[in-house]
Design a protein around this nucleic acid. Structure first.
Lengths: 167, 167
DNA sequence: TCAAATCCCATTGACCCCCATCATTTCCCA
DNA sequence: TGGGAAATGATGGGGGTCAATGGGATTTGA
């Protein structure tokens, strides 16, 4: 359950696009056969995630004070603007016109893995941004502090695939 | 069981409106075939929820001091003004005139998902408010701290669909 | 008895199922 | 190791189905 890599697919005349096989494989345990998309806050892109990730967002919002302004805003922005998109028989989704317009997508869609989530871009917009972000990372000499293997959920570690996650 | 997305439907001359298929699907386990609506105390909107969620609200009110002003007010506001609205054969409800007037609804109704609950709006009123929400969220740099997967109800996690929820 | 609610059926257009084709990759074996 | 066959994923498109809608007919209840 990990989204990796960049996959460019075609948007057809009916507004359909194939979800990359690798991404569908990452989701094959989900009860809902499809993906969720919503408009990114910061980028001209679409945020993508699984049903269970969306459940997690809803559960987290539930915990904020029911009447807090911040929870309200997040609910409107994420839950209210999200689209639940089931696959067709061939593993495609229909990209709603609203989202195509927001992300300025034309005839191609880039699926970009971000671990637990992913993003959809117009490839022509994403490419220069990716270059820029690579350059910044190199200049900064950024390093990532890895979590110890023992803190990962079982099933994410080799040789633990069939065990129950007791965490 | 998750309400997501914004669905705009027509209010017909008989005061009927179709409940979005996705919302009905989220409720198909409920004993009561319909929805509950009550006036929002913050917004010019209607709060919507399932029968079991209404039970949950009633149970929460029970826990407040029975004679406190707050419990009184909440009971009047929510339980006193709530409407139990059954579907007709086509999955529509009749919007009571009182609620139409309160939410200043005209010929269209926006069903806006908020996770465990949803809201009904006049789309012309909701749209600019949602834009404002998005802007505030961006400015605030708001990030949502996600609950750990292990604290979610079973059934909301992949691979647990058939298990009993022991929580 | 009248008004409102419910039932029933018709229409329509978007979506989904199905199949056919094409492009890659994988596999197998010489 | 190269070539060819088979499997699989991506793409294109036709047509049937169903959700959303509109309105008439029947029932209910005050």
């Amino acid at each position: 359950m990990l989204f990796t890599g960049t996959h460019i697919h075609k948007l057809d005349r009916k507004g359909r696009v194939s979800v990359p096989k690798r991404f569908r494989a990452a989701l094959d345990q989900e009860e809902f056969a499809g993906i969720y998309l919503y408009q990114s806050h910061k980028e001209s892109a679409l945020e993508g995630c699984s049903h269970s990730h969306m459940e997690r967002i809803a559960a987290s919002l539930d915990e904020l004070d029911m009447f807090s302004d911040e929870a309200d805003d997040l609910a409107d922005t994420i839950l209210g603007s999200s689209h639940m998109l089931p696959y067709d028989g061939e593993g495609r989704i229909i990209l709603p016109a609203e989202l195509i317009e927001f992300a300025r997508i034309e005839d191609q869609v880039a699926f970009v893995g971000r671990g637990r989530t992913f993003r959809l871009w117009n490839p022509d917009i994403f490419k220069p941004l990716q270059e820029a972000s690579r350059t910044r990372t190199l200049n900064r000499g950024a390093t990532l502090k890895l979590k110890p293997m023992s803190e990962l959920p079982k099933g994410a570690r080799p040789g633990t695939a069939d065990e129950e996650d007791a965490s």
